[in-house]
Write a protein that binds this DNA or RNA. Structure first.
Lengths: 185, 185
DNA sequence: TGTACATCAGTGAACGCGCGTTCACTGATGTAC
DNA sequence: TGTACATCAGTGAACGCGCGTTCACTGATGTAC
């Protein structure tokens, strides 16, 4: 049957949001179309009323998650004079490490973006924007280029969270986060 | 039919080696058992004479690749007084970025190790060893802990290569590598 | 040293499963008049 | 404003495919005597 326009749009938003969390937690091959639809409160058959392929959904989900993160950081920069240190604390936290579903899209999906073509240009634009945001919005040491420092910080944070998640030993995992934090301050 | 013992052992080594390259290039779900067997010069049916499950093969492949890397770095440290800078150059090179199959196992597979349980304890041991190797084998600034610096360098290198691989724009991709290099020197 | 035979890595067909995708069908919505 | 009907998001069964895994079979190897 036909559904009210706004209701359909709301379901679409729920699907993209649910997909972005599931993908961050389980990766592209770890999430089925049916699972994403179920998380959005529908059955799998309706999927193709929302997206042409699973890949298209993934691209939308990645763009959505990256945009959400950008907005959060924008607010952080606006609100706090010491935004960089606040951001480091939350990014390199146990909470972030243990909650990939709601965490950084780069740490969760960059490897898969690199492997398949999925969301590559989306990812590129958003990373560019994110580096600019960090370089100009955070405060940096005067000796070296702010942009270089922003790139190093981004790479180190992403790498640290990925490694901390891969590791068995809770002491080592915590140490990866705290040592990276100490070095980046 | 039955095969000479040494021939079987050689096939096993070929399988592990081929798997380690395929897995680094395509990820766990991107490589089928048949594909790995074909790369090792066999047909898929014989797989279960070598491993009980696909997961077991992945664990052996990860351990193999990490051990090979450890040995390479050991030789580098032995040979060169400025090993750290040489290592940075080769790790943060375009060649490494563009050749995941023969590149760093952490940059290629850490995310999947974190997601599934595959090779988690193997990965943990080898990362521990790798951090120690870097902290004690490379030369570091005196102001801060060598171990913290080794952890930051590892995280930043892994993150930089992952991001450089995910990105569309060759200029940005190169910049991620060179900026990280400049900051880590 | 020679003979008999059990072993077992390898082959290729087959199985069962989950996946992405397609399809016939439904019926309230939104539009044309 | 009311009526007739085309639209289309959603349902759930079905399809085809590739995957991991199993299996009957092969025949040279390696062992027991």
């Amino acid at each position: 049957m036909r559904y009210p326009v706004e209701e359909t749009a709301a379901k679409h938003r729920r699907l993209v949001d649910a997909a972005s969390r599931l993908l961050r937690a389980k990766g592209l091959d770890g999430v089925s179309v049916g699972e994403a639809m179920k998380a959005a409160g529908m059955t799998h058959g309706a999927f193709y009323s929302h997206f042409g392929t699973k890949i298209e959904m993934a691209e939308a989900a990645i763009a959505h998650a990256l945009d959400e993160a950008h907005e959060e950081i924008r607010q952080l920069i606006e609100a706090s004079p010491d935004a960089r240190s606040t951001f480091l604390d939350s990014y390199l936290s146990r909470a972030h490490r243990d909650n990939a579903a709601n965490g950084c899209t780069m740490a969760a999906l960059a490897v898969e973006v690199g492997r398949h073509a999925v969301g590559r240009s989306t990812f590129t634009n958003r990373l560019k924007r994110s580096i600019q945001q960090a370089a100009s919005g955070f405060s940096w040491g005067k000796r070296r280029s702010a942009r270089d420092q922003a790139i190093l910080m981004t790479a180190a944070m992403v790498g640290a969270v990925i490694l901390a998640r891969a590791v068995d030993d809770p002491k080592l995992s915590d140490e990866i986060l705290t040592a990276t934090r100490r070095e980046l301050v």
